[in-house]
Simulated assay, not measured.
Amino acid sequence: MKLNTIAFKAFVVEEKDGAYVREIKMRTVNDLPEGDVLIKVHYSALNYKDALSASGNKGVTRNYPHTPGVDAVGTVVASNSETFRPDDKVIVTSYDLGMNTDGGFGEYIRVPKDWVVKLPENLDMKEAMIIGTAGLTAGMSVLRLSQLTKPEDGKIVVSGATGGVGALSVSILSKLGYTVVAITGKESERDYLHKLGAKEILLRGEIENFDKKPLLRPLFAGGVDTVGGVILENIIKATQPMGVVTACGNVASPKLELTVFPFILRGVTLIGIDSQDYPMAYREQVWKKLSKDWKPETLGDTCTVITLKELDEKIDLMLAGKLKGRTVIDMGV
């Protein structure tokens, strides 16, 4: 059989009469974009960006029909690169995968060689997708934070702590010996967050209602913020002198209403994290750490495994803010 004639299932989003319809359809490899490496996908994972793409958000995906899925792990079927050979186990996350290039919600993807990372020896494929873009983003955040802040410096706060990036950040930081304060809007998830390693829980409403002063009483040595908006503002204002805060999300708001006082008077450092185009050398470094020293002991506890048929429902739940942890799609079921 010629490779281009291989038929496979894919979760396809189409625009019909002004609405966006999601269906599982049969496609062929010939339908995929050109690329150096053809990969059979074993697992994918659901991210917020996928949910936006599946809803017709033109800021994420310009053209439809389209198959989302910014995360994929699988085996190489064919390759034009000397780096990757058939049967190699590989990971593809971010870049343009699942945005304007058909992504991991299909049983096959074809991508440029520069997007591909070999699966580390200490990770299996399911674990790689529990980590996925969310874990890679968490790892990048921890890497930058840990270069400037040590466990003995004080508490580290993590916002959006029941989400994919937040939950994995809590787990990794806890494993590295940091005292973690988890911010959540879900009172019912206290036990879950404590199990991940959080020592304290701060409800979202509490930090949102902090004083409006330009500087607040120092509470944290640093933070990992995944939501932006007033929560990020108050984390920065409550960070102690020479503390470090990383920011990787803006679901609450992309705007910050701050003075320069935290940065000038306290020397607080704010570091932006963009996992989409993060340099490959750093990606490989973070993946290696995530497969060894940083691999959370509670990794499986942050995950729900579903089939492609269950994906539509999970997308709606994610958009409604009703999912916790990671949702992994088993493409072989």
Rank of each mutant, 00 (worst) to 15 (best):
I6G: 01
I6V: 15
F11L: 08
V13I: 15
E15K: 11
D17Y: 08
D17K: 14
G18I: 06
Y20R: 07
Y20Q: 06
Y20N: 10
Y20W: 14
V21S: 08
V21Y: 00
R22N: 14
R22H: 09
R22D: 05
R22S: 14
E23W: 00
E23R: 15
I24D: 05
T28N: 13
V29R: 11
V29Y: 05
V29F: 04
V29A: 12
D31S: 14
L32H: 07
P33Y: 07
E34D: 14
E34H: 13
D36T: 11
L38A: 06
I39S: 11
V41H: 03
V41L: 03
V41Y: 01
A45G: 14
A45P: 01
L46C: 01
N47V: 04
D50T: 02
A51F: 02
A51S: 15
S53D: 00
A54R: 01
A54M: 03
A54D: 03
S55M: 04
G56D: 03
K58P: 00
V60Q: 03
V60L: 02
T61R: 02
T61Y: 02
R62I: 03
R62H: 10
R62F: 05
Y64E: 04
Y64R: 06
Y64F: 13
P65S: 12
H66G: 01
T67L: 00
P68D: 04
P68L: 00
G69I: 01
V70N: 00
V70M: 06
D71V: 10
A72W: 00
V73T: 15
V73S: 11
G74W: 06
T75G: 04
T75D: 12
T75L: 07
V76A: 03
V76C: 03
V76G: 05
V77K: 09
V77H: 02
V77A: 04
A78E: 15
A78I: 02
S79N: 08
S79A: 11
N80P: 01
N80I: 00
N80C: 04
N80S: 14
S81H: 13
E82M: 07
E82H: 12
E82C: 01
T83H: 11
F84V: 09
F84Y: 14
R85D: 00
P86M: 09
D88S: 02
V90T: 07
I91L: 12
V92P: 08
T93W: 02
S94H: 13
Y95F: 14
D96H: 12
D96Q: 13
D96N: 14
G98S: 08
G98Q: 05
M99C: 12
N100L: 00
T101H: 11
T101I: 15
T101A: 13
D102S: 10
G103I: 09
G103T: 11
G103L: 10
F105T: 08
F105C: 06
F105L: 03
G106C: 10
E107A: 12
Y108S: 12
I109M: 07
I109A: 09
I109K: 12
V111E: 04
V111L: 04
P112D: 09
W115R: 06
W115I: 07
W115M: 09
V117N: 15
V117Y: 15
K118P: 13
L119I: 05
L119D: 09
L119N: 11
